[in-house]
Amino acid sequence: MVMGNFKKKFSPDRLDKAAFAGIIALSASIVVLSVFFRGHTPAGAIAGGYAEGAVQQPLSAEAEARIKQIKNIIEGGGDPAKAEGLIKDAIAQYPYEAEFYMLMGDMYMREQKPLSAVSRYKEAVDLDPDYADKTSNLFEGGKIRVALREAKHKLQAALAKDPDNARLKKAKSDLYYLLRRLAGSCG
């Protein structure tokens, strides 16, 4: 009887049927997304470390000492291979410490490897958005922009020769991502 009353009251027309089909299709798409793409993070998304809104944790004394040591080598014109080795060790020990990635980017810039530098700068910015935030003391926009400019020239030339190269495509994606980060966002 209840069903009878419901049917009498609700006689679906074309719009209802279309909307109902839409709801079913959208619900199915949620299932598909959840099953196949749940763990998928967009290229450049923060994969660990500091979330956008989180308060940054202070560095440990040991990490600070290492940063100082590496900076002394780089700025004093010391052995780049030694500095690179120290940074790699530090990254292995402190994988969520953004400054080591920035230092690695700096190293690569000195070695005139802007594509590798951009990749490291991207990781640094992902871990600590302050590097791309012009309101922050840590802002390194000028340095990153120089790397982006040089990387862009190299990329254009490399992609012209090998347009299907996955590594180059990833580098291009990182480059545009960093450009957007530096351009700013309301969110």
């Binding site: 949620i30 997304l33 959840s34 793409f37 749940r38 998928h40 993070t41 967009p42 290229a43 450049g44 998304a45 923060i46 956008e52 992902d126 991502y177 957007r180 980060r181 351009a183 966002s185 969110g187």
Partner: peptide, 13 residues
Amino acid sequence: GGTPAGTPFGGKI
């Protein structure tokens, strides 16, 4: 919300 990196999974849902 969307970020310069893209649309997060939760945003799509």
